[in-house]
Amino acid sequence: MSTPEQWLQALQTDIDQNAYGAYPAELYEPIRYIMSLSGKRLRPLMTLMAASLYTDDWSKALKPAQAVEVFHNFTLMHDDIMDCAPLRRGKPTVHARWNTNTAILSGDVMLIKAYDLLLTVDSNRLRSILVRFNQTATEVCEGQQLDMNFETRWDVSEEEYLNMIRLKTSVLLGFALELGGMVGGADEDATRLLFEAGVSMGIGFQLKDDLLDVYGDPAKFGKQVGGDIMANKKTFLLIEALERARGKARADLDYWLAADTFDKEEKVQAVTAIYDALGIRTLTEQKIDEYFSRGFDCLGRVAADPTRKAPLLGFVRQLVEREQ
């Protein structure tokens, strides 16, 4: 039985060996650059783990797993352009290091390369995998558009927000697990449960990110705590606060949301105090637990050898308990 470390090493080696193309260099170098900014590789790792539930030959899932990671980084490259973001994982974004047009075109090629990598799967599974990938990719774009729509709205409901993060971030995590099951030879019921598990976990992870941005330990979180508050980002916490605040709490919240100039630390402390008074932290923690419980329930119902499930369950539990 392989370990997450072995899967990650094999995956990274496979990614490093993929040149994606050679000429013109200006088209392919940005792809190699963003793929070298090693993130957690969470999605492709889950693809390999899901495949290993059903086959000892999990290496046949390496290229499909890499397809998930290439597609994920393609969305990041284009998201950075839309957000005018200067940094990605502490390094200059592609459009900042090269230019916007290059980032758009290189991102387009990444989407095509993701399809090339998926074409390595067995022919009897290929069509169904491409159908699911196309649906997932479309939903990711729908989620991004909803996220942009929400920037100019102050009446976003909890239901709308949860649906947005399901589309923008969670369905790809669900597909990563589903893909591994399909490559490994799982039946339709198992792949459905793997997808549902990934979606629920993905929503839980995003809600936890929302929570950690306000209540995380800066030394562990890895970035500035309170960034969402300073930017008036419509997170689960802010949406719930806007729904529940009355009287002075609502007046104070409206004041900080409308302020054009402010002391950053003062705003973070003031809005956090409003969250505390409204019980937003507890409410968010309960919602996180609800989605993680759904995910573990789905994984528990996946028909697979318990000893093969152990590495995946252990890996997910580590992610659930993370503080960064």
Rank of each mutant, 00 (worst) to 15 (best):
M1H: 10
Q6L: 13
W7E: 13
Q17P: 00
A19N: 10
A22N: 15
P24H: 08
E26P: 01
L27T: 15
P30S: 06
R41M: 06
P44S: 14
L45E: 07
L45S: 11
L45K: 05
M49F: 10
A51R: 15
L53P: 13
Y54I: 03
S59I: 05
K60F: 02
A65W: 12
Q66I: 11
A67Y: 13
A67W: 09
A67F: 12
V68Q: 04
V68R: 07
N73V: 08
N73A: 05
L76V: 13
H78G: 01
D79Y: 02
D79F: 06
D80N: 06
L87W: 03
R88A: 02
P92R: 02
T93P: 09
A96V: 09
N99F: 06
A103K: 03
S106E: 02
S106T: 01
G107N: 11
D108P: 13
K113T: 01
K113F: 07
Y115T: 10
Y115K: 05
L117H: 12
L119P: 02
T120S: 15
L126T: 12
S128K: 12
I129Q: 11
I129M: 08
N134L: 10
Q135Y: 04
N149D: 15
R153D: 07
R153K: 14
E158F: 11
E160V: 14
Y161I: 06
M164R: 01
T169Y: 14
V171T: 11
L172C: 08
L173E: 00
A176T: 10
V183E: 02
D187Y: 02
E188L: 02
R192P: 00
E196T: 11
E196F: 13
A197D: 04
G198Q: 08
V199I: 06
F205I: 03
L207I: 03
K208A: 00
D209Q: 08
D210N: 04
L211R: 03
G216H: 07
G216P: 07
P218M: 05
G222E: 11
G222V: 12
N232E: 10
N232P: 11
L238H: 08
L238K: 01
I239W: 08
E240W: 07
E240P: 00
R244G: 02
A245G: 04
R250A: 15
Y255T: 06
L257D: 02
L257G: 05
T261A: 15
F262T: 10
D263G: 12
K267I: 08
Y275W: 15
D276M: 06
G279P: 13
T282E: 10
T284Y: 03
E285D: 08
K287L: 12
F292G: 00
F292E: 02
F292W: 08
R294D: 03
G300M: 10
R301C: 02
D305L: 05
T307G: 00
R308N: 12
R308M: 08
P311S: 08
L312D: 08
L313H: 13
G314I: 06
V320D: 04
V320G: 00
E323W: 10
Q324F: 15
Q324I: 03
